[in-house]
Design a protein around this nucleic acid. Structure first.
Length: 267
DNA sequence: ACTCAGGTATCCT
DNA sequence: AGGATACCTGAG
């Protein structure tokens, strides 16, 4: 057990923010997170304090980085420039951009297209159970590129990937063979990284932006999905001033996303 | 039974 | 370059 201070952090908002599909609330203030080959339980204690089920060494070497604990999210963005953005920032305080692995983010968001968040969770979970190494009781790690590259088509189909199965299969082969190195892509500037990702099957502008934001921690990446599209249309006349939030436009995007989804009546 | 879901690839003009 | 359409499948 280790007690850490991470402020602001709202586990439930972050878990439900659609950036990570392996972070689940077990109760109102406890969540379980699986990342890499690790699994941890986190309890909200209040006052920015959290109780991690791991020891201090594991927290410091892994989970602190995963939760981006050293970044001051209150000081990250300039003041919001309009009432809607201000409301979003206020509502979504405590949402952080987790530092997930590029590979897991890549496959997760290829799977995400044209699906609801609960359906994506289900799908990722099935994939992990079928092809990931067990890491704890009833919990499996995210499958390696090799494991997915070698998975037979009917195996992937059994995970209900639908028409995305060939995308996953082909992308996994490109990564497993070394033809595409996700590590090497990290050296690229944002625009080059975006185009490189979009050369992968099943990866278009939206998925590439999600992989950049959530997998490569490129905080200026700005995914536009149906919710953000509605917000941009209805609240900003189609012209959102994302440059005002550079180099962290992706953070305001995430706040807008969480806020918009919290009030589906206000479309 | 029906629409919609954190889109992309492909095929048009 | 920009618009239309098909696509697997679970949730509401």
């Amino acid at each position: 057990m280790f007690e850490a201070t991470i402020s602001p952090l709202d586990l439930a908002l972050t878990a439900g923010s659609g950036q990570c599909f392996r972070m689940a609330m077990l109760s109102q203030d406890v969540c379980r997170v699986v990342a890499g080959h690790r699994c941890v339980t986190v309890r909200t204690l209040g006052g920015g304090r959290f109780l991690f089920s791991c020891d201090e060494a594991e927290y410091r070497t892994f989970w602190a980085g995963f939760f981006d604990a050293d970044t001051d999210y209150d000081g990250l963005l300039p003041a919001a420039h309009d009432a809607y953005a201000q409301a979003a920032v206020r509502y979504a305080r405590g949402v952080r951009i987790l530092r997930q692995q590029p590979w897991e983010a890549l496959i997760s968001f290829i799977l995400s297209q044209r699906r609801s968040i609960p359906a994506i969770r289900l799908c990722v979970d099935r994939l992990c159970r079928a092809y990931g190494r067990p890491v704890a009781d009833g919990v499996c790690a995210f499958p390696t590129p090799r494991a997915l590259a070698d998975a037979p088509p009917d195996g992937l189909a059994a995970c209900s990937l639908g028409y995305r199965a060939p995308y996953v299969s082909q992308t996994a082969r490109l990564v497993a063979s070394g033809e595409v190195s996700l590590d090497a892509l990290d050296a690229l500037p944002d625009d080059a990284l975006a185009s490189a990702l979009q050369r992968l099957p099943g990866v278009g502008p939206k998925v590439a932006a999600c992989v950049m934001l959530f997998g490569y921690h490129r905080l200026n990446a700005f995914p536009v999905d149906v919710w953000i599209d509605r917000v941009l249309r209805d609240q900003y006349g189609g012209q959102f001033p994302r440059e005002l939030y550079a180099p962290c436009a992706g953070v305001i995007q995430q706040y807008l996303f969480v806020y918009a989804r919290s009030r589906p009546d206000a479309r």
